[in-house]
Design a protein around this nucleic acid. Structure first.
Length: 112
DNA sequence: TATGTGACATCAA
DNA sequence: CTTGATGCCACAT
């Protein structure tokens, strides 16, 4: 009877647990959820994140730290502003010292 | 059931 | 720097 929550909700659950000043990648989340390189699923889930207010999508960047989804934040550099406001240095749409700000769910969160 | 879609990742040239 | 191709798979229609 217990049905597994939609893939979306699993993604949101992880993203919501990203601490301030930290970022993670689509691929990292995908590996944590499905142990697979299906990072597109994460990006696609994020596309629907417009419905979720409590979802810090600005903490999710691509593997290089590039703010690929900033255009979904209103068109301006809102995403960068949010990250810098949390102590993350961003320049040219790319997170600086990514390894210091990177938050890996596969390491920080318990396995499913 | 099939088709289209996507805020990615990775390789190649 | 760019473009193209390939893999990946949940969800909408």
């Amino acid at each position: 009877m217990e049905q597994d929550p939609p893939f979306f909700e699993r993604v949101y659950t992880v993203v919501r647990q990203i601490p301030e000043g930290k970022v993670t990648s689509y691929g990292a989340i995908a590996r944590y959820l499905a142990s697979s390189g299906s990072a597109r699923m994460v990006g696609w889930a994020m596309n629907a994140s417009h419905q979720r207010e409590d979802l810090p999508a600005h903490r999710v960047v691509n593997r290089l730290g590039l703010l690929t989804g900033k255009h979904h934040f209103g068109g301006q550099n809102i995403m960068q502003q949010l990250l810098e406001n949390e102590g993350v240095t961003v320049k040219e749409n790319q997170v600086q010292q990514l390894d210091l700000h990177f938050w890996d769910p596969t390491k920080e969160l318990p396995p499913i």
